[in-house]
Design a protein around this nucleic acid. Sequence first.
DNA 1: ACTTTCACG
DNA 2: ACGTACGTGAAAGTG
Length: 619
Amino acid sequence: MRVQHYRIAGEPVIVRSVETSEDVRAFLDWCRSNHNRPIAFDTETTGLDIYAAGFRVRLVQFGTEREAWVLPVDSAAGLVCAPQAAVREALESLPYLLAHNAKFDALAVAAHLGVDLVSLWRRITDTRILAHLLDPRGPQDPGGIGQGLKPLSARHVDPDAPDTQAGLYAEFRKLGHTKETGWAAIDLDNPLYTLYAGLDVILTARLFAVLGPLVEFAGYGRLSEFEHAVALVCARIEARGFLLDVEYTETLAARLLAEADEWSAVARRFGVSSVNAPAQISAALEGMGENLSETTESGAIKVDKEVLLPLADLDRKWQRIGAREANPLADAVLRAKRASKWATSYADAMLSRRDTRDRIHPDIASLQARTARMSISRPPLQQLPSGDWVIRRAMQAEPGCVVGTVDYQAVELRVLAALSGDVQMTAAIHAGKDLHAFTAELIYGPGFTEYHRKVCKGIGFGKVYGGGPDTLSRQTGAPLDQVKAAIRAYDRAYAGVRRYSKRLQSRAEWGVKEVVTPAGRRLPLDRKRLYAATNYMVQSTARDVLAEALLRLDERGLTEFLRLPVHDEVVFVAPADDAKEIGREIQTAMAVDDFFGVPLTTDLEIGGRTWGSLYGAAA
DNA sequence: ACTTTCACG
DNA sequence: ACGTACGTGAAAGTG
């Protein structure tokens, strides 16, 4: 057994690395004698892509505030002692486990060491969840530090705790590896590797010693349980994965890449060597006599889609307007950028993330944004183009099955009506009215047009988000004076909403700079952006509506059909013959009859074999 | 590392 | 004193 010593917060800690079968027995003895204490665990792996061919768990660590055990389990290492069975035994029997960002480690040991995910998860407390409840701000937000183990340890455990990740990257480079290759290549007994692996669990145990009582003291006990349950459902969705149509996606990627090349060649003829270089584009456009007035935050000339589309005589749906001669460079830049983004961010990302059964396991972060919203990454399946089916067509149901969705109808506006108690808005919802059309009628009278409805939809969202007349005018494309009039009319029609927003803001102005959601979540506000209060409240509450729905779906045994949560909807896959029935069950489980006086109703859509079929692709 | 852009709800 | 659209993930260029 190798023993390494270190100091954390001025106290000596010890890291033991298992080398012999005798060490394995000593580890199991240690587990037994610490059975009743919370034990932090962690894994070191070959990479982040748990389901990729060649992925391996290399180390599994267990530890308390003072002591860590590091066990090598890498199947490719030809180990003298094989502690896999002991690791499994520990993971299956220790009653009280801790982990930071537990989902990753739990999925890794479930997929590669044969540990049962559900029974393991029931015994885990995730310190990242605790940290998010206590402060959901990201590292970029004013006053925020994020939920990383490093910044949390620095704040709550030891300001001089080592940055183990950065330290390892430096070691990788020294050994001739890179950030990416180092994780798989570093020797299992590299002293820095084992030391840092051990320190991570010691830090997690110490972090819990601080955050655990804070969570209880803040009254977050139930919310914490709720979040752990939601995280498990999301982890199971992730583990199941979503089937990729590889042949289609490969053809699509090649086609998009060729398209990007063609349009890049056109841009090159106008002196733009890269369509991703804004300075080149603005210089070339100005050389062609175009007048560019919009600037970015840092003062550079803006050449985003909003600027380029009018120059190319295209509307927001890329239809020819006929107002001017299309600028061929603007047109080429737009098309090249779209094609290459779709190729790299979506098609290639999907292909590179598939497992041996052609399934995609995106990283579902069930508790991510400041508002607790979920995020999905690698690949970003919540952000696929919705105006065109070609990308979504890549994801498909298993043979004999179809893809469907259930989404909430105008959930953010309904949540706003519920929270504000606005009488008029609540009544309109109860009457089953189209809220945006109803608003249009209130403002423009019974003769309102489809255009008026659109303006009102924009204003409705803009109000929720706290936008002013200028932004709303730009966003909706409606003239400023009309928007201003509509805002006035909106405030008159929905006086309760206006009162509610004002109340949230003035409370924050004079009292604590936060909003408290009905779920009991305390969301800090940036002092310069108190107007975001209503948005945080509504967005966060809508998120919790979906999160609670996921738990109801799980209770009813419907998790196996789920493929993705997408903010206000779930994507599911079911056998074609049962899809309607299963879809209805999902609808029923998600619907809320009385959410603070407002019904939250759902829409069901059943498509064909692919996700794209719900966006216009042939079934 | 930072900026810019673009995809979604 | 004033008015501010919110929340994400990802790629690529620049320095």
